[in-house]
Simulated assay, not measured.
Amino acid sequence: MVKFLQPEWNSLETIDLTVKFVWHHPEWRMSLQTHKFLGWP
């Protein structure tokens, strides 16, 4: 089973921690709210 983890979108620290976690736990995937990075509501 694949699991998804989503970092807080406006924190580079949580993005970095999420990337590191997913890198070391291959059963996890990173999920992003792309619309927030683009500035959409």
Results as ranks from 00 to 15, higher is better:
4 F>G: 07
23 W>E: 13
20 K>R: 11
37 F>K: 08
16 D>K: 12
10 N>E: 09
37 F>Y: 12
11 S>L: 08
23 W>D: 12
27 E>D: 15
19 V>P: 00
12 L>Q: 15
9 W>N: 11
16 D>A: 11
26 P>S: 15
23 W>K: 14
36 K>W: 00
3 K>I: 05
13 E>S: 04
41 P>K: 07
23 W>A: 15
9 W>Y: 10
16 D>W: 03
36 K>I: 03
15 I>K: 03
29 R>E: 12
40 W>D: 09
30 M>A: 10
7 P>F: 14
17 L>T: 00
39 G>S: 08
9 W>G: 01
36 K>E: 02
12 L>V: 09
37 F>I: 14
4 F>V: 14
41 P>R: 06
26 P>L: 15
16 D>C: 03
7 P>E: 06
30 M>V: 13
22 V>F: 07
8 E>R: 11
33 Q>I: 03
12 L>F: 14
27 E>Y: 12
24 H>T: 10
24 H>E: 07
17 L>H: 10
32 L>Y: 04
37 F>H: 10
39 G>A: 05
9 W>A: 12
6 Q>H: 04
17 L>S: 06
37 F>W: 15
25 H>A: 13
34 T>I: 11
37 F>L: 11
6 Q>C: 09
29 R>S: 14
36 K>G: 01
27 E>A: 12
12 L>M: 11
24 H>K: 13
25 H>I: 02
40 W>T: 00
16 D>Q: 13
11 S>Q: 11
28 W>N: 02
19 V>E: 05
11 S>C: 15
28 W>A: 14
34 T>V: 12
39 G>W: 03
18 T>S: 14
10 N>H: 09
41 P>Y: 04
17 L>M: 09
30 M>T: 13
36 K>A: 02
26 P>C: 02
13 E>W: 00
31 S>A: 15
22 V>I: 13
7 P>S: 12
27 E>C: 12
37 F>P: 02
28 W>K: 12
21 F>E: 04
29 R>I: 06
7 P>I: 10
28 W>F: 15
40 W>V: 09
15 I>Y: 06
3 K>P: 03
20 K>Q: 12
17 L>D: 07
38 L>P: 00
26 P>E: 06
15 I>S: 04
19 V>C: 10
16 D>F: 07
32 L>C: 09
16 D>M: 04
12 L>R: 11
9 W>V: 03
26 P>G: 08
20 K>F: 00
26 P>Y: 05
7 P>K: 08
15 I>G: 01
39 G>D: 03
14 T>K: 06
10 N>T: 08
2 V>G: 08
14 T>C: 00
9 W>Q: 06
31 S>E: 11
4 F>P: 07
14 T>N: 07
41 P>T: 12
33 Q>F: 09
12 L>C: 08
9 W>T: 08
20 K>D: 15
15 I>P: 02
24 H>C: 02
28 W>T: 02
2 V>Q: 05
22 V>Q: 00
10 N>L: 14
14 T>Y: 00
26 P>A: 04
18 T>V: 07
6 Q>N: 06
30 M>L: 11
33 Q>V: 04
39 G>K: 03
